[in-house]
Design a protein around this nucleic acid. Structure first.
Lengths: 220, 220
DNA sequence: GTCTATAGCCAGATAGAC
DNA sequence: GTCTATCTGGCTATAGAC
């Protein structure tokens, strides 16, 4: 409310008003949530007039959706790139893949980058079904999950292909939990380092995947 | 907005206005989120006048907090009871504990019970830090996690006690993922049964815990 | 305890000047 | 493209009748 000074002025950004509004949206929506941010605050932070949101995006909600599209799209693409990079090396183990995927994500949330906050906010919206799940959850994440499933099957061939999606989803759950609740982790384990956490996650998930592949050869 | 007919009338509930308001709060807040529900809607759904929220709870936000306190408190207690019950039996395996804890939670979200929705909403609020994390996240869940850590150590004694909290947190992550994203699970795996899902989760988490306990012991 | 009526405020969108 | 001024409508909280 008392935030009326522009925080994304022309000096900070050589881009146009549209980009300044997207930056202001990321900062303010992540901090307070959609309903607690007014168009007046957004335009004040972007250093433009109140009509600009409607002029450039067609409304507050459209600006919100555009903000997610930008961040989530680049995050999915970054993950796909990481997978290609690690799988192109010789002698890759399951642990290498897991660590390569997890590390940049955890680093991003620990270092409190805007991207991490936007993804948290997106999860929040998915939980409340107030955003277009068609586009984000299914199309984008579906593509990433399919790729992950294929490379995990490549590294651990004796998983039942019909179950690989469940394995990928559990992998996703293992990543998402610290991603979402990092404050809680740090609160109850103040000495936890990022490497401790990564080591644990890699070990836990790798064991889960391998143990899932060979349950208990009792004649099945 | 057009929802103006009372949905929790005196016939449904022999309790007083206070309980009808709590029921209306669970239904409406879970559906639309705090900011999208007006006091007018709440009181219309509870079949009372608009002043009742302020009279009984001291404001819309106090009613919101009270709703969480009720549901989250009983959920933690139910989990603690389940743990006591399963651990009192002879010859309990890790898998028995995991399944006993997971089953009622997953059933609750699959059958779309109000309790499950309230917990989802609570996670949403924790993600946005707009609720008193002191009370909920640390005190209540801390108690449950401590108990879980002790019984897991009892069942799998060779886990490093300094790492048991990380193991419990990964267990929590494994439960929370389908709990939060059940619609997504059902969308990409329409034939998934509750038992398939439970079997997978038990197998994945048990392997993760056991593999974590003994990282490289090929001859066990 | 229960209710109505209203005070006081702030929102998103837009018309129209420049 | 940019801005100001304003329209229209919603909200929470409360004063005060019963």
């Amino acid at each position: 409310m008392e935030q009326t000074k522009p925080i994304f002025t022309q000096e900070g950004h050589k881009e146009d008003v549209k980009n300044r509004l997207l930056d202001a949206a990321e900062a303010l929506f992540c901090e307070k949530g959609f309903d607690r941010v007014s168009v007046r605050e957004l335009t004040a932070a972007a250093g433009c007039n109140v009509a600009a949101v409607n002029y450039y995006f067609g409304g507050k909600d459209k600006l919100y959706a555009e903000m997610f599209r930008r961040q989530f799209g680049t995050m999915i693409q970054r993950n796909l790139d990481v997978i290609e990079r690690v799988m192109s090396q010789p002698g890759v183990a399951l642990e290498d893949l897991l660590r390569a995927v997890m590390k940049p994500l955890i680093r991003r949330v620990i270092e409190n980058e805007t991207g991490g906050k936007v993804i948290r906010l997106l999860v929040r919206e998915i939980l409340n079904r107030q955003i277009d799940r068609e586009l984000f959850a299914r199309d984008m994440k579906g593509q990433l999950f399919a790729r992950l499933g294929r490379v995990i099957l490549q590294l651990v061939p004796d998983i039942d292909p019909d179950r690989i999606l469940l394995v990928v989803l559990s992998f996703d759950g293992a990543i998402l939990h610290p991603f979402l609740f990092m404050e809680f982790y740090q609160e109850i384990m103040p000495d936890l380092t990022i490497d401790d956490l990564l080591d644990h996650m890699v070990r836990f998930v790798a064991a889960g995947i391998r143990g899932y592949a060979k349950p208990n050869q009792e004649g099945n």
